[in-house]
Design a protein around this nucleic acid. Sequence first.
DNA 1: TTGAAAGCGCTAACAG
DNA 2: CTGTTAGCGCTTTCAA
Lengths: 339, 339
Amino acid sequence: MAVSIKEIAKAAGVSTATVSRVINNSPKLSQKTRDKVLKIMKEMNYVPNSLARGLSNQKALNVALLINIEEPSSFHNPFFYEVMHGIETAVYKRGLSLIIASSRGEDKQEIVEWLMNEKRMQGIIIPSSLADGKLLNLLRKRKFPFVVIGKFEEGIKPVSWVDINNQQGGEQAVAHLIQNGYERIALICGGMDKVFNLDRLEGYKRALARHQMPMEPNWIVETDGSKNQAYSAMKALLQSDNCPNAVICGDNILSFGVMKAAQEMEVSIPKDLGLVSFDNYPLATLVEPSLTSIHIDVFQMGEMAANSLLALIDNPDASQQQMLISTAVEVRESSIRRT
Amino acid sequence: MAVSIKEIAKAAGVSTATVSRVINNSPKLSQKTRDKVLKIMKEMNYVPNSLARGLSNQKALNVALLINIEEPSSFHNPFFYEVMHGIETAVYKRGLSLIIASSRGEDKQEIVEWLMNEKRMQGIIIPSSLADGKLLNLLRKRKFPFVVIGKFEEGIKPVSWVDINNQQGGEQAVAHLIQNGYERIALICGGMDKVFNLDRLEGYKRALARHQMPMEPNWIVETDGSKNQAYSAMKALLQSDNCPNAVICGDNILSFGVMKAAQEMEVSIPKDLGLVSFDNYPLATLVEPSLTSIHIDVFQMGEMAANSLLALIDNPDASQQQMLISTAVEVRESSIRRT
DNA sequence: TTGAAAGCGCTAACAG
DNA sequence: CTGTTAGCGCTTTCAA
């Protein structure tokens, strides 16, 4: 059927070992034979069989991305799709491919075993929502390369992870609002059981402190992430004595709730209330006024996760790395007072 | 390292051929030896090496999903994520895994070659936005199993595809509006270069005809899919002489534009204007009134695509199938007049 | 119903 | 620098 290394060897008048060497571009080869073999390979339209290589090397040229089917919202969809694209881009450059393995949480142990034992993956990328000590120990015991997407802290054991620099995002949001003349800044976010919300809060606090801005306990509101809770929270804030004149929201949905509250109370955005949202999706450019957002580069997060994993694959004893991706303020209407 | 077929054979006192037979549960085997071998396999925690099997069989136990990176909107994101999940679910049941291969359109030919030759996939799933005669001919020439996601008609050559029954969706939208007392129904959709928009239009027309409802040419509006164009279109409709009292939108974004126009013109939804949207995401439950939607089960589309592909893998000469997934009306506020 | 043995296509000592 | 050769783990004739 397809042409194999043996036929190339014969046609080029060399041994299969030599052909193998040019495939893997081994350094110890004369330029002359290398060129000759390459030429024949091209002519005969040779493609190495990744299965045979895999069998020889004891590894498939694949890495897996575990996806958490149960939590489509935390890693919400367009978000994850972008991450995946980033990963795919990076691994493809190395001739590897990305396989998707979905898990419902309870079965993750099994699935990971399957990926390691049967499918012989080279490495695996795990969202932090699926990572836990038990799973990671299984991986570590086997010296199996993995990286976590989303900050993961688990005692003293080092783990490679990549995350968005949410603290920086929180700081940027505050700094941007201050620059635009707002000084009484509230924060409405999702559950504090999520590390990224804690990080954003931390950034928020730091920035306020650094700029010597007031900070009120009731300006920090934790919600379940729904539009309705954001709405109620904002309404309460606007009715309170120490009413803020700006607010930072954890995502577009929360912002939507805030906008509804403002509208009802006839508080004008951005004139009376500045608004900065995390995320650019799905509403940022759709609503009026459009939302100034803390943009999160999830594509890059995927790329970096993949590169980190590739490094571990190349050298399983390489040190674990923790990487943060910078956020950026995307300025739109909701935070700029028209003059 | 891991235990191999040879060790199982030795431990069970049989040959490797026999072990292989139980792995593939070949019929010609005494129950007794089968049980014995199975027991040993369990005890020794044996897992077959998919690479070695692949090499022997000349195929990797993988199928690929091509994704079109250039067109994140046509197959818009959460949509595609669900499709992928459906595919993964179906192939996993068969012990296969799903690999993701992204393409920017120009390079799809190469990528598909790579998947066939080097990665030795068993089959491939292609979004219709990436499918064209040239690519499919390449696949056909190699007798390589593939299915297209999204209706694909290309002359007389049969192709397996699965799609949402968009025509049915259009009909359902009309029927639902009529049932709720609206009789002057407009349609605002995206570009008519997309087959799904044509199908919806077709359904719309048929339903109107069947119910003997009026139909005006200017009630059918093609847009670029932006909120703004929907807004302008709706405004024009509301100002026109033969103003409709209901409208069907191609997606949530268009609906958002329509809602803005209605609000500005002080036309109340659903009282004065009924609204039905395609898709449930991202705004359907968020806006007020919430959007009655034509729900599209993309998870199922993924599953069916995968099953169709598996059938072709099992028997490459199986007949090509075309499958349509039913849509359903999800009733919310925007189309029900409060009494 | 089972076993022996020859591959599948590639890699990696080892020898030269 | 290059060739010989023995696997990698499984499948599959062919014989028994």
